[in-house]
Design a protein around this nucleic acid. Structure first.
Lengths: 118, 118
DNA sequence: CCTTGACCTGGAGTTGCTCCAGGACGGTAG
DNA sequence: CTACCGTCCTGGAGCAACTCCAGGTCAAGG
């Protein structure tokens, strides 16, 4: 799979993927003899995960740490589990943030309607 | 209210508040004769709103536009309403993103447990 | 009177992309 | 065979939104 396909499959941009590779967030991607990147199904799965973690606010440093653990094999699973569980908690906090914002917006919108009606 | 209090009341940092003022996201804040900023209750309410909008991903440019509308008075309410309704939709999209991430994480965690059990 | 703490300003530094210039390469059309 | 096109490559500049810092002011307390 070429980079443009990996991009649309993962939701990341082409530039972002190259940037992530350079930054150590994915293992060095294999190249064809033309020098172009070839993404395996495993690579793409990894990109999908990174994309999801990024979109929910995980920091690059954490993702890099997670990537290094992943490359060290199954012995690092407990630590990886810890990270993902921690991120699950982050998701819950973010739901709280969204809910509070929705409340504030609902309140504001109600006030707008009251002003319009008066 | 001094800037440190406005910061802890709104959840924004002191530097962020000053930055927002310079950037036109809040009307110029009144100063005491010592030159220090004095935040009114209205100012703080506004900061709380900005904080919530920022935390849910609204762009500064949009917030600035919203702030300008606000300063122009009640005639801009329909447009402000449009912006806040649009942001409500964003909140829904973000809930979707959180849910999808939670699913991926649950799946990964299950697989970790399977590997550990085998 | 001297120090402490909270504030001020302008500007540099950081994160995480995002875009761009300049160049190579493979496939198709003339 | 050659011209052109689309997709890729690299290194580096640019951008958003903070975040931190140096150097300075001022009021109040010991």
């Amino acid at each position: 799979m070429r980079i443009s396909e990996a991009a649309s499959a993962s939701g990341l941009g082409i530039d972002t993927i190259r940037y992530y590779e350079k930054a150590g967030l994915l293992p060095p991607v294999e190249r064809g003899r033309d020098g172009k990147r070839r993404f395996s199904a495993v690579d793409v799965d990894w990109l999908v995960l990174l994309s999801s973690l990024r979109d929910t606010g995980m920091r690059m440093e954490t993702m890099r740490y997670f990537a290094r653990l992943y490359q060290r094999g199954d012995e690092t699973i407990p630590e990886r589990k810890r990270i993902l569980l921690g991120h699950s908690e982050q998701l819950d906090k973010q739901r709280g943030v969204l809910d509070r914002c929705a409340e504030i917006l609902a309140h504001k919108l109600k006030r707008y309607d009251e002003i319009a009606a008066s």
